[in-house]
């Protein structure tokens, strides 16, 4: 049972980690907590249901399931990337030089807007993700790991590695690091700060979309409200790992998933959500910079 809980926790945690990356990247560059990020994840989950419905109608899912799932990821990623870009453009860029609180309020406004927009256009009833992925898996020491769980773990790992390499090895990644250290200095040496910020939002949104698609497949149903709790938990994960720190977000997500899974099974399932927020409070009291965060002083 312990192994099973670890696997469940890691699966959940890798999803949190993917969402947390979006929070942490944006914070690293803008010192802004993008509260609408959870809604991007929710839209990603909805896009998965819609895209798969369209692909099923064309008959592709019956012919080639892996290809259609790949396409679902691509479609959802494209849409969410576009949402992220638009979000930055209309809600944050005009407020770039405003008081620190203004973009934060704008973020909360966008979150409420997107939630209600999805509720009105997609109805309030839970949408069911078609049961096309077989629930089979491996048996390991009394624990059953479904292929879907393996897929989620592997896909998250690949995406996180890709992100890590992108930031460490590419020119654009270097520009992002430079902007996060000092955006004015970065602009003086010829980095287009606006486009770097836009790229950050797009990448964060694509990762959230991937998390959304995987959650839609894993849980089997989505509604307009899932972005709220997932967003807050991913935010906790980002704070736990040290906000602004990319490996920290990955670590924080995985730890949070484990704590939630183990806490719910060994302590009380009633308090499942409490564990996440307990961690948030403890981290903020005892280690405000997070596990891997360096001291940033006045930035926080």
């Amino acid at each position: 049972m312990f192994i099973q809980q670890i696997i469940n926790g890691l699966t959940l945690g890798s999803v949190y980690a993917l969402i947390a990356l979006g929070y942490t990247m944006v914070y690293g560059i803008l010192q802004l907590i993008n509260f609408a990020h959870g809604e991007i994840y929710m839209i990603g989950a909805y896009m998965a249901v819609i895209a798969l419905g369209v692909l099923t109608a064309t008959g592709l899912t019956a012919v080639n399931l892996p290809l259609s799932i790949f396409l679902v990821f691509i479609i959802s990623g494209l849409f969410c990337g576009a949402y992220g870009l638009t979000l930055e453009r209309i809600a944050y860029r005009p407020l770039r030089h405003a008081h620190r609180l203004s973009p934060l309020i704008s973020a909360i406004g966008m979150s409420i807007f997107l939630q209600n927009y999805v509720m009105l256009t997609q109805d309030t009833v839970d949408k069911v993700f078609p049961h096309i992925i077989p629930a089979t898996g491996l048996e390991l020491a009394g624990a059953s790991i479904s292929y879907l769980q393996i897929f989620i773990l592997a896909a998250s790992f690949i995406l996180m590695t890709a992100l890590h390499l992108f930031i460490k090895k590419t020119r654009l990644g270097k520009a992002m690091r430079a902007t996060s250290q000092d955006s004015r200095m970065a602009s003086l040496v010829g980095i287009n700060v606006d486009s770097v910020i836009a790229v950050t939002f797009v990448i964060g949104s694509i990762l959230a979309a991937a998390a959304g698609v995987m959650v839609a497949m894993y849980y089997g149903s989505v509604n307009f409200f899932i972005g709220y709790s997932a967003g807050i938990k991913a935010f906790t994960a980002a704070v736990l790992g040290g906000i602004g720190n990319i490996p920290g977000a990955m670590l924080g997500g995985l730890l949070l998933g484990l704590v939630e899974g183990l806490g719910a099974s060994y302590i009380s399932s009633e308090y499942k959500d409490v564990f996440a927020f307990l961690i948030l409070i403890l981290v903020l009291i005892f280690r405000p910079t997070g596990l891997l965060g360096e001291r940033v002083g006045e930035k926080v």
Partner: peptide, 14 residues
Amino acid sequence: VVIQGDKDFRAVLT
């Protein structure tokens, strides 16, 4: 106990 509105019940089921 499970929480109404939650979507992940694997901890309880395990």
